[in-house]
Design a protein around this nucleic acid. Structure first.
Length: 299
DNA sequence: TTCCAGGTAGCCG
DNA sequence: CGGCTACATGGA
């Protein structure tokens, strides 16, 4: 990997298959916001960074080489060759080929497990703009101060032990609705062993990880699969939300209610990287829907 | 007003 | 087990 460092900035040269929009605005993460120049600023690992891409270079502002090696390289999944995966998924599937060309620069992030757990509990029966607002409010009200970057103040994600000691009323400012109770309960469950079990799940068998996550309040099969896919590198997890159910029905003609058949089909048709396939489809379905919304407003 | 959003817990057969 | 429904919130 060809990296240069200057002035609190890291540049990784010769990276293909990366685009900030496809990676940070595809519903896998909720704390990245787009800047006027097309870059994204976000928080992870208690640090604020700004990320852009230009002519094969991934540019990470406000980061050291040490930070990159410890966190961002893994977080951005930069060492994986997505071209091979894309080729395999698109083979004999013109619809998938379309979805992939739409989101060709998508990377599946490897996020922090605790934050991903809480974020996707919030995501249930909710929409992405409001999920972002809820999480931002959770951080500003209950996270620790990180610092200022380009005129904005940033906070970390609330600590597990802090949430475990609260009750739902303490979260009322965050407008989480009925999910506030789920979060408190899940936090208490995870905190029982100081998060040791949760943090060991990336090396656990997928079935074991899934089983533990399902034991947490507010976590069902869909949320568990998101956590496994977006924070544990378990790429054979296939989250089935309302959008993907529609896609599976429209493209692959599976009955809307037949979740089990959708899961089976995904595993067989897309294989070990079905979770990545799912994310291309999710991004594609939502972008298409945005375009048709605009058409409807014009008409 | 009603419907919808990256669903799940609780309950009932 | 599978099916059904209530659940907070805010935007369209």
């Amino acid at each position: 990997m060809n990296i240069s460092e200057d002035n609190n900035r890291i540049i990784i040269h010769g990276i293909k298959d990366f685009h900030p929009d496809h990676t940070f605005d595809n519903g896998q993460c909720f704390r990245w916001s787009k800047e006027a120049d097309g870059s994204y600023t976000g928080v992870a690992f208690g640090k604020v960074v700004n990320i852009n891409y230009f002519n094969g270079d991934v540019i990470i502002n406000n980061a050291s080489l040490k930070d990159f090696d410890e966190h961002w390289k893994n977080y951005l999944d930069l060492e994986r060759d997505y071209s091979v995966i894309k080729k395999t998924l698109a083979k004999n599937d013109p619809q998938m080929m379309k979805a992939i060309s739409f989101g060709h620069g998508m990377r599946i992030l490897c996020q922090e497990k605790w934050e991903t757990l809480i974020s996707f509990i919030i995501s249930q029966n909710n929409n992405i703009p409001r999920i972002k607002k809820c999480i931002e409010s959770l951080c500003t009200n209950h996270g620790s101060y990180i610092g200022e970057y380009k005129g904005k103040i940033y906070y970390g994600f609330p600590k597990m032990d802090d949430l475990a000691q609260m009750d739902a009323g303490d979260l009322s400012l965050c407008r989480l609705g009925y999910r506030a109770n789920y979060i408190i309960k899940a936090a208490r469950q995870v905190a029982l062993d100081g998060g040791k079990t949760l943090n060991s799940l990336d090396t656990a068998a997928p079935e074991k990880a899934h089983e533990y996550l399902l034991s947490l309040t507010g976590v069902g099969p869909k949320v568990a699969n998101c956590i496994m896919l977006f924070s544990m590198r378990k790429y054979n997890s296939f989250p089935l939300d309302v959008w993907i159910k529609r896609v599976m029905n429209q493209i692959y003609s599976i009955d809307v209610g037949n979740v089990k058949r959708m899961q089976n089909y995904a595993g067989k048709h897309f294989g070990e990287y079905c979770g990545i396939a799912q994310q291309y489809l999710f991004f594609y379905a939502r972008e298409i829907s945005k375009v048709s919304d605009q058409d409807q407003r014009k008409a």
